[in-house]
Deep mutational scan, measured.
Amino acid sequence: MATVKFKYKGEEKEVDISKIKKVWRVGKMISFTWDEGGGKTGRGAVSEKDAPKELLQMLEKQ
C-alpha cells in the first residue's frame, strides 16, 4: 500500500494511505487526518507537488 511521507513539528513521519480518514486542500497544501489507534487522531500536511497520486485521488472523491 502507498504511504505519505511528511514532516510534522520537525519530525519525519510516514503514514499508510489506508489509515487516512479525511483529506482537504489548504492553498497549495494537502492536509489530512488519520487514525493512530487508541482513539487518537493524527494530523499532517504535504505540498501538492509531493503528494502521492492516491492521496490526490482521495481528495477528488470528496
Rank of each mutant, 00 (worst) to 15 (best):
Trp34Gln: 00
Gln62Met: 09
Ile20Gln: 00
Ser31Ala: 03
Lys21Arg: 11
Glu11Pro: 01
Gly38Ser: 10
Gln57Arg: 07
Asp16Phe: 10
Lys9His: 06
Met29Ile: 04
Tyr8Asn: 03
Val46Thr: 08
Thr41Trp: 13
Val23Met: 06
Asp16Tyr: 05
Ser18Cys: 11
Ile30His: 01
Phe32Tyr: 01
Lys28Phe: 06
Lys19Gly: 14
Thr3Gln: 05
Lys5Gly: 01
Gln62Leu: 09
Val23Gly: 03
Glu60Ile: 10
Gly42Val: 11
Lys19Val: 13
Thr3Leu: 07
Gly42Arg: 10
Lys28Pro: 13
Asp16Leu: 09
Ile17His: 02
Gly42Phe: 14
Lys28Leu: 05
Glu48Cys: 14
Lys19Pro: 01
Val15Ile: 14
Thr33Trp: 04
Val15Gln: 02
Asp50Cys: 14
Met58Tyr: 14
Gln57Pro: 01
Gln62Thr: 10
Leu56Asn: 08
Gly39Glu: 09
Lys61Cys: 15
Val4Thr: 01
Thr33Leu: 10
Ala2Glu: 11
Glu36Ile: 04
Trp34Tyr: 09
Glu36Cys: 10
Glu14Asn: 06
Asp35Met: 11
Lys28His: 05
Arg43Trp: 02
Met1Asp: 08
Glu11Phe: 11
Leu56Met: 14
Lys13Cys: 10
Glu12Ala: 10
Val46Phe: 02
Ser47Asn: 11
Met58Thr: 06
Lys49Thr: 12
Glu54Ser: 09
Glu48Trp: 03
Asp35Tyr: 07
Lys53Asp: 05
Ala51Gly: 04
Asp35Arg: 03
Val4Phe: 04
Val46Ile: 10
Lys13Tyr: 09
Trp34Phe: 04
Phe32Val: 12
Phe32Gln: 00
Ile20Glu: 00
Ser18Lys: 09
Glu12Trp: 09
Glu12Gly: 04
Gly10Cys: 07
Asp35Trp: 07
Gly39Met: 11
Glu14Asp: 09
Thr33Ala: 07
Lys22Gly: 08
Ile20Asn: 00
Lys53Leu: 06
Glu54Arg: 11
Gly38Ala: 12
Thr3Cys: 04
Glu14Tyr: 06
Val4Glu: 00
Gln57His: 06
Glu14Cys: 06
Trp24Pro: 00
Glu11Tyr: 08
Glu60Phe: 02
Lys19Trp: 12
Glu48Val: 08
Met1Ser: 14
Ile30Tyr: 03
Lys13Gly: 02
Ile20Tyr: 00
Thr41Ile: 11
Gly37Pro: 11
Ala51Lys: 01
Val46Arg: 02
Val26Tyr: 09
Met1Ala: 13
Gly44Ile: 13
Pro52Trp: 01
Phe6Arg: 00
Val26Leu: 04
Val4Ala: 01
Tyr8Pro: 01
Ala2His: 09
Pro52Lys: 02
Gly37Trp: 09
Met58Gly: 02
Leu55Phe: 05
Ser47Leu: 05
Ile17Tyr: 01
Leu55Tyr: 01
Leu55Trp: 02
Pro52Asn: 09
Ala45Met: 07
Ser31Leu: 04
Arg25Phe: 07
Met29Trp: 06
Gly44Met: 07
Leu59Cys: 10
Gln57Glu: 04
Tyr8Met: 03
Gly37Asn: 09
Glu36Gly: 08
Ser18Tyr: 07
Gly42Trp: 09
Gln57Phe: 08
Gln62Ile: 10
Gly44Ala: 13
Phe6His: 01
Glu12Gln: 04
Gln57Cys: 13
Gly38Cys: 15
Gln57Tyr: 10
Glu48Asp: 11
Ala45Cys: 12
Asp50Gln: 15
Glu12Val: 10
Glu11Ala: 07
Gly10Asn: 08
Glu14Trp: 03
Glu11Gln: 05
Met1Thr: 09
Pro52Ala: 09
Ala45Glu: 15
Lys22Gln: 14
Lys13Trp: 06
Gly44Val: 12
Asp50Glu: 08
Ser31Pro: 03
Glu60Cys: 15
Met58Lys: 04
Lys53Gly: 11
Lys28Ile: 04
Val26Thr: 06
Val26Glu: 11
Met1Phe: 12
Lys28Gln: 10
Gly44Gln: 10
Asp35Gly: 07
Leu56Ser: 08
Lys9Gly: 15
Gly38Asp: 10
Asp16Ser: 09
Lys9Met: 11
Tyr8Gly: 01
Gly39Leu: 15
Ala51Trp: 01
Ser18Met: 13
Lys5Thr: 05
Val46Pro: 00
Lys53Asn: 13
Phe32Met: 11
Ala2Val: 13
Thr41Phe: 14
Arg43Tyr: 04
Val23Glu: 00
Glu14Arg: 05
Lys9Thr: 01
Lys53Met: 11
Ile17Ala: 04
Met58Glu: 07
Glu54Leu: 06
Ile30Ala: 02
Trp24Met: 15
Gly37Ala: 13
Leu59Asp: 02
Gly39Val: 13
Ser18Arg: 13
Lys7Ala: 07
Gly42Asn: 13
Asp16Glu: 10
Lys9Trp: 07
Thr33Asn: 14
Val23Leu: 12
Arg25Cys: 13
Gly10Thr: 02
Glu54Asn: 06
Lys40His: 12
Ile17Thr: 09
Pro52Cys: 09
Glu11Val: 14
Glu11His: 12
Asp16Ala: 11
Glu48Gly: 05
Leu59Trp: 03
Met58Arg: 03
Ser47His: 14
Thr41Gln: 06
Lys22Asp: 03
Ser18Thr: 05
Gly42Tyr: 12
Val46Leu: 07
Lys13Arg: 11
Glu54Lys: 07
Gln57Trp: 07
Ile20Phe: 05
Trp24Tyr: 05
Lys28Val: 08
Asp50Ile: 07
Leu56Ile: 11
Lys28Arg: 05
Lys19Gln: 07
Ser18Gln: 11
Lys40Asp: 15
Leu56Ala: 05
Arg43Leu: 08
Arg43Phe: 05
Lys22Val: 13
Asp35Thr: 07
Arg43Val: 10
Lys13Phe: 10
Val46Met: 12
Thr33Gln: 09
Lys19Tyr: 15
Gly37Val: 15
Ser31Tyr: 08
Ile17Leu: 09
Ala51Gln: 04
Lys49Cys: 15
Val4Tyr: 01
Arg43Asp: 15
Arg43Glu: 15
Ala51Leu: 03
Ala2Leu: 05
Glu12Leu: 09
Glu36Arg: 03
Glu48Leu: 07
Thr41His: 14
Gly44Leu: 07
Glu48Arg: 04
Ser47Phe: 15
Ile17Val: 14
Val23Ala: 11
Thr41Asn: 13
Ala45Val: 06
Lys40Gly: 11
Pro52Thr: 06
Glu60Lys: 03
Lys7Met: 13
Asp35Cys: 10
Leu59Lys: 01
Asp35Leu: 14
Phe32Leu: 07
Glu54Asp: 06
Val4Pro: 00
Val15Ser: 01
Trp24Lys: 05
Ser31Thr: 07
Gln57Lys: 10
Glu36Ser: 05
Arg43Gly: 11
Trp34Lys: 00
Leu59Asn: 02
Lys9Ser: 10
Gln62Asn: 07
Thr3Phe: 10
Trp34His: 08
Ile30Trp: 02
Thr33Lys: 08
